[in-house]
């Protein structure tokens, strides 16, 4: 007898839950609320990417065209597929000593897998992820970028 009642209670419970689900989808059909689709080419001027988005590796420069990169080469050794090359140079200081500074921080965007190891391992937090993602070019060599801007120098804020 209990199985008899269970049959009907299961039936009505099932129908009730199905109708509840259909009410939800029906409400969304008639008033979808916020449409989450990004209409990309039209909204590219006001589009806001998320902070965590990994568009490309950039080197942070301040307003005096200065960066934190010491040219230590940890990013170069930590990159799993060799998309970073560090070319450093030695410059003569006024007191006669020599100092190693970064000459070119070459970043091959075409080989990068955006794993983020270089950004994580940088001891002086010189690298970061930028939000630009429109990287399509007709020539592969255009993907080889020099991250330190021309004429830039290192921020000497650790000693002072």
């Amino acid at each position: 007898m209990s199985s008899f009642f269970k049959y009907f209670s299961d039936l009505f419970k099932g129908v009730k839950s199905l109708l509840k689900g259909m009410a939800v989808t029906n409400r969304y059909f008639f008033s979808p609320g916020e449409i989450v689709t990004e209409q990309y080419p039209e909204n590219r001027n006001k589009m806001k990417m998320y902070d965590r988005f990994k568009g490309e590796v950039i080197m942070i420069h301040n307003e005096h065209n200065q960066h934190h990169c010491t040219g230590c080469g940890i990013c170069e050794t930590s990159c799993p597929n060799g998309s970073i090359e560090i070319i450093s140079k030695r410059i003569d200081l006024p007191d006669g000593k020599k100092e190693r500074v970064i000459d070119k921080h070459i970043y091959h965007l075409g080989m990068c897998t955006f794993c983020g190891l270089c950004v994580k391992n940088c001891p002086s937090h010189a690298l970061a992820f930028g939000q630009r993602f429109e990287h399509a070019v007709y020539d592969r060599t255009k993907l080889n970028k020099i991250l330190n801007h021309p004429g830039s120098s290192i921020i000497k804020d650790i000693e002072e």
């Binding site: 989808t25 969304y28 059909f29 979808p32 609320g33 916020e34 449409i35 989450v36 689709t37």
Partner: peptide, 13 residues
């Protein structure tokens, strides 16, 4: 279109 609206999308446009 129905599927798109139900899932908060716009569907083919």
């Amino acid at each position: 279109k129905v599927c798109g609206f139900i899932q908060n999308r716009v569907g083919p446009n």
